[in-house]
Amino acid sequence: MSIQHFRVALIPFFAAFCLPVFAHPETLVKVKDAEDQLGARVGYIELDLNSGKILESFRPEERFPMMSTFKVLLCGAVLSRVDAGQEQLGRRIHYSQNDLVEYSPVTEKHLTDGMTVRELCSAAITMSDNTAANLLLTTIGGPKELTAFLHNMGDHVTRLDRWEPELNEAIPNDERDTTMPAAMATTLRKLLTGELLTLASRQQLIDWMEADKVAGPLLRSALPAGWFIADKSGAGERGSRGIIAALGPDGKPSRIVVIYTTGSQATMDERNRQIAEIGASLIKHW
């Protein structure tokens, strides 16, 4: 067993022997301040990774656009098919120029040779490549099948209805392509620590998230040296922004954090800054 596999296998073990965790309302004060600064709703939840206990939450059962955070769930569904012998990570998928959609920095470079399922998941999570996500959605049967996968996990809230990039439209009061912070946090925890996926697939999923290259201005910008984070960000229309993450000190994750916002007129930089400040408060009061 590799060191990384050992780390993920012992996530519940280490967490069980940690000192009790206590909620700190100071972080919620910052979440509410972010709402004021952005002029928009902000949803927040913080779960203990081992027990699933909610440590703090704000608007945990209000719907927010998922945006690209759905790509972690998508690759979880792909990995479940791999575990069941219905898919192979090494299978190569070929596609054409007509398949390319807006923001496809990886797939646009491989029109000639195609990409493997493993490479597509890596591109979808680490670079948020939209064509990679659409190609992977095709392998599982489309958005409705991802929703069905989530329902089978016990998540009857999260739903995907459309493809990239239309799913980022974020129309107010439109339930399409949305989740709730509580539902997303619980589902992410199941994917990373539950028995739904094999140990190898859980490790692969967290490795992809740990290698995320496009979430630097968010929670990662607030992390002290030595902290662990595996995350996936999302951005959408109407001032929408979000991030889902597993993080913790001492090089291992111990909490799940989900943050979503929508309806702001603020710039992307300002949305990023507010999420980073929430992260800084979380870490300060850990």
Score class of each variant (00 low, 15 high):
residue 25 P to R: 02
residue 27 T to D: 05
residue 27 T to A: 05
residue 30 K to S: 15
residue 33 D to F: 05
residue 33 D to K: 01
residue 34 A to N: 08
residue 35 E to Y: 02
residue 35 E to N: 05
residue 35 E to L: 04
residue 35 E to G: 07
residue 35 E to S: 04
residue 39 G to M: 15
residue 47 L to A: 08
residue 49 L to E: 01
residue 50 N to C: 09
residue 50 N to P: 03
residue 51 S to D: 01
residue 51 S to N: 02
residue 54 I to K: 14
residue 54 I to D: 07
residue 55 L to S: 09
residue 56 E to D: 10
residue 57 S to I: 01
residue 58 F to C: 00
residue 59 R to G: 07
residue 59 R to K: 05
residue 61 E to R: 05
residue 67 M to S: 14
residue 69 T to W: 01
residue 71 K to P: 01
residue 71 K to R: 01
residue 73 L to K: 05
residue 73 L to W: 05
residue 75 C to R: 02
residue 77 A to V: 00
residue 83 D to L: 09
residue 84 A to W: 07
residue 85 G to V: 14
residue 86 Q to E: 04
residue 87 E to C: 12
residue 88 Q to P: 10
residue 88 Q to F: 11
residue 89 L to M: 07
residue 89 L to S: 09
residue 91 R to Q: 12
residue 91 R to D: 12
residue 93 I to E: 03
residue 94 H to F: 07
residue 96 S to V: 00
residue 100 L to R: 12
residue 100 L to T: 03
residue 101 V to L: 06
residue 101 V to A: 06
residue 105 P to E: 14
residue 106 V to Q: 15
residue 106 V to Y: 10
residue 107 T to S: 11
residue 107 T to R: 13
residue 107 T to C: 01
residue 110 H to M: 01
residue 111 L to W: 03
residue 111 L to T: 10
residue 112 T to V: 13
residue 113 D to I: 00
residue 114 G to C: 13
residue 114 G to I: 01
residue 115 M to Y: 05
residue 117 V to I: 03
residue 117 V to S: 14
residue 117 V to E: 07
residue 120 L to T: 14
residue 124 A to V: 11
residue 126 T to F: 00
residue 126 T to W: 01
residue 128 S to A: 13
residue 130 N to A: 03
residue 131 T to F: 15
residue 131 T to P: 05
residue 132 A to Q: 06
residue 137 L to G: 13
residue 141 G to M: 00
residue 143 P to L: 08
residue 145 E to L: 06
residue 146 L to V: 09
residue 146 L to H: 13
residue 147 T to M: 04
residue 148 A to F: 12
residue 148 A to E: 14
residue 153 M to P: 11
residue 157 V to Y: 09
residue 158 T to F: 07
residue 161 D to Q: 12
residue 163 W to F: 10
residue 164 E to A: 02
residue 169 E to K: 03
residue 169 E to S: 09
residue 170 A to N: 11
residue 170 A to F: 14
residue 173 N to Y: 10
residue 183 A to T: 07
residue 184 M to D: 12
residue 185 A to L: 05
residue 186 T to S: 09
residue 187 T to K: 00
residue 187 T to E: 14
residue 188 L to I: 14
residue 189 R to P: 12
residue 189 R to L: 13
residue 190 K to F: 15
residue 190 K to H: 15
residue 191 L to P: 14
residue 192 L to G: 11
residue 193 T to P: 07
residue 197 L to W: 08
residue 198 T to N: 14
residue 198 T to D: 05
residue 199 L to D: 13
residue 201 S to P: 12
residue 202 R to C: 14
residue 202 R to S: 07
residue 203 Q to I: 04
residue 204 Q to I: 02
residue 206 I to K: 14
residue 207 D to A: 12
residue 208 W to I: 02
residue 211 A to S: 04
residue 214 V to G: 14
residue 214 V to F: 14
residue 216 G to H: 08
residue 224 P to R: 11
residue 225 A to K: 14
residue 227 W to R: 08
residue 228 F to T: 02
residue 228 F to P: 08
residue 230 A to G: 10
residue 230 A to N: 13
residue 230 A to P: 02
residue 231 D to P: 06
residue 233 S to H: 06
residue 238 R to Q: 02
residue 239 G to A: 13
residue 242 G to R: 02
residue 242 G to M: 05
residue 245 A to L: 10
residue 246 A to L: 07
residue 247 L to M: 09
residue 247 L to K: 11
residue 251 G to Q: 14
residue 253 P to I: 01
residue 254 S to M: 08
residue 254 S to W: 15
residue 254 S to R: 04
residue 254 S to D: 05
residue 255 R to K: 10
residue 255 R to S: 06
residue 258 V to H: 03
residue 260 Y to D: 02
residue 263 G to T: 15
residue 264 S to F: 10
residue 267 T to N: 09
residue 268 M to D: 07
residue 269 D to G: 06
residue 269 D to R: 03
residue 270 E to G: 14
residue 275 I to Q: 14
residue 276 A to L: 10
residue 277 E to G: 08
residue 278 I to C: 14
residue 279 G to R: 08
residue 279 G to N: 02
residue 279 G to Q: 03
residue 281 S to K: 09
residue 286 W to Y: 11
